[in-house]
């Protein structure tokens, strides 16, 4: 186990050094990622400029929802980039090479690429988070700070799980399945706003099936001290993300087994 971490760090170092070979491109892309998501927030800002408020939520409060989910998504894209490009690995046959090495395939896929340029997106979410928290006037306590970190971590686990499910699908079909984007990109879109603005069936789906709520209202209601917030549920919510990741790992194992029986 310990040994696996050491190997992962080795992969990490290699991936970063490889990206630094193209420094100019790296800087450009990082800036690009920064702006791509800043624009999203501009859109939200424009809506608030027109409408004033959203079912009792202010722009500053939305800023917290926006930054938590975007940070979780950016962290996922950064560390699980290998899963994102996984269909290519299967198509080109290079997945065989990973199977020929005496290590977990998942470790090797995750190690294959760490996309540092996603820092641009994280860097963009951070000031929005700070601005939001400041403007709302959150009274910070160690528990709340921990919960905010937990919400981001839970969201990251959830997205890694979704990426993993998406990657596992390429064991069954070589066609790139956009449908998975519903849950990853669509999930990010959805959870930029509090889930309670959506219709009930939609809210239930993102609470119990794909538990996006673990990086949305469950913890943030507690942090923002909304009426009806349940601290215990909030505190436990990051575990939902972890649980989801566990389920996704089972699917992955199943996929690898299938790959070995069809050979494609």
């Amino acid at each position: 186990m310990n040994d696996s971490w050491k190997l992962y760090l080795h992969y990490l170092g290699i991936s970063i050094r490889a990206q630094m070979q193209y420094r100019a491109s790296f800087v450009m892309m990082t800036i690009g990622f920064f702006f791509t998501t800043v624009i999203e927030f501009l859109g939200i800002w424009a809506m608030f400029a027109r409408f004033g408020s959203l079912q009792g939520w202010s722009l500053a409060e939305i800023a917290l929802f926006y930054s938590v989910i975007n940070m979780a998504f950016a962290l996922t894209e950064m560390f699980a980039r290998g899963l994102d490009t996984f269909p290519n690995l299967v198509k080109s046959g290079d997945f065989d090479r990973l199977l020929l090495r005496p290590r977990s395939t998942l470790l090797q896929v995750l190690g294959s690429e760490v996309s540092l340029m996603r820092l641009g997106r994280i860097l963009q979410a951070l000031p929005i988070m700070l601005w939001g928290a400041h403007t709302v006037g959150v009274v910070w306590s160690p528990g709340k700070a921990l919960l905010l970190i937990g919400a981001t971590a839970g969201g990251t686990c959830l997205f890694v799980g979704l990426f993993l499910l998406q990657a596992s699908m390429s064991f069954w079909t070589i066609e790139s399945l956009e449908i998975a984007n519903i849950l990853t990109h669509g999930g990010t879109q959805t959870a930029q706003y509090p889930l309670d603005i959506y219709r009930p069936w939609f809210r239930i789906f993102f609470t119990f099936v794909v538990p996006l709520a673990c990086a949305n209202i469950l913890p943030l209601n507690v942090i923002l001290q909304r009426p009806g917030a349940t601290p215990l549920l909030g505190a436990l919510s990051p575990c939902l993300g972890l649980l989801f990741l566990g389920v996704a790992m089972l699917a992955w194992g199943q996929g690898v087994r299938r790959y070995c029986s069809t050979g494609s």
Binding site: R50, F51, G52, L54, Y193
Partner: peptide, 15 residues
């Protein structure tokens, strides 16, 4: 998603 977001905004304001 987009329809629901707009719907929520329209519900929140009479502007």
């Amino acid at each position: 998603i987009r329809v629901m977001i707009f719907q929520a905004f329209y519900r929140s304001s009479a502007h």
